[in-house]
Amino acid sequence: MTEAWIDAMQILASTLRLATPLIFCAMAGMFSERAGVVDIGLEGKLLMGAFAAAAVASLTGSPWAGLGAAIFASVALALVHGFACITHRGDHIVSGVAINILASGLTVVIGIALFTMGGQTPPLDRAERFRPITLPFADQVADIPVLGPLYAELLSGHNILVYAALAAVPLASIVLFATSFGLRLRAAGEAPEAVDSAGYSVTWLRYRAVIITGVLCGIAGAYLSTAHGGGFVREMSAGKGYIALAALIFGKWRPVPTLFACLLFGVLESSAARLSGVSLPVVGQIPIEVILIAPYVLTVILLAGFFGRAIPPRALGVPYVKER
């Protein structure tokens, strides 16, 4: 019993670690899409952030400098997206595709120019990474039944960015649903003409939303390369930006359901590693690929309206043209 409980706590802890970049990216996408800007470029910003964080952490020796660089690089890409979609009313999807391909090429090109290691950054040592934090008394209480492992295995021992991701969800909720800024931001995505007639700039609101998206994707990237991993490898985002987008849709553009979607997709990923080669009762061996594509399949089923309806913000992807 105790063994199984500790196991369960460890699986949940690994779920949390795998879900962290998804949570950041999904919250990032929420700001952008709630304001009316479609963002399929989460993947590219995540990758760019991961590269910038590892490169700068490696050059300066400080993960915090890396985090700053990740945010800077990701916001820069976000502003390109904003410039195309908001200022020039370009197609949001096309711009997102461009951002993703650009990031995929730039990270390797700059990586080779800086480090000549085939697009990787040098492996980061302990001081250059975000280290796990042991919460107070974790070792002392570990032996207490039930609650001990819950505290020691699940809650304690993560790096600071994991806790930041968990904090980002209530923070996003408050900003979006309890501030006047959030109200206007959501209105920019639902009824931009109303925002305009109330005297607020739709353009500036959408730009601020896109910048917040950039900041959050940057943190997610720093997490991938300087906290969860120990350095950048090419294409290390590996579709996580798209899974986050799926989670955002799955959570119907709401913070808490989106968090749970991220955790669900995190469980799938952490169990895929554990289940490979294991024979289960009734179904037998499940190929690991089947578990890994489950988030995409579930999202398609949801989008088709077979369990609940995912209704996007009304003005999502519609450029706002001010009447003259």
């Binding site: 195309a84 370009g90 461009a98 951002i99 650009l102 090429g105 730039l106 390797v108 090109v109």
Partner: peptide, 18 residues
């Protein structure tokens, strides 16, 4: 990968910023 960068830029300039 320089070509990938160029490809991204072409999509940006010929598509989103057309």
């Amino acid at each position: 990968n320089m070509v990938l960068v160029l490809q991204g830029l072409i999509i940006l300039f010929s598509g989103a910023l057309a």
